[in-house]
Amino acid sequence: MQYLLLIYDNEAKLNALPPAQLVDMYAEYGALTQSLKNSGHFLAGRQLHPVAQATTVRVKDGKQSVTDGPFAETKEQLGGFYMVEAADLDEAVAIAARIPSARTGSIEVRPIVERKDQN
């Protein structure tokens, strides 16, 4: 099965991290990505720019509205993702637990809808 692991963390806290710690974290992410590639779990994975760079688009009655945001009232923001191949939810959860941000933020594990014509 395929899963999207959505990485939520507190941007403000991440920005406040001392540079050395940030370097460590990126190194850990790099090692995890490499390890997931080696084990055949990795399908895709990227870091996102902060929410400040986000744009929200809605179309209502044929009229398009573009705003900044999402206005993050929540403490954690979507900061990146992995798309992985895993045998089942338990394996996907085990991978999610290895993501560095699981210790400071949270990882949402979402099964991807399977469609025959896309496989």
Binding site: L89, E91, V113
Partner: peptide
């Protein structure tokens, strides 16, 4: 079914 909750006894560590 959809989230792939496995039908097995969990691993020792879990």
């Amino acid at each position: 079914r959809d989230a792939g909750i496995p039908y097995r006894v969990p691993s020792r560590e879990d």
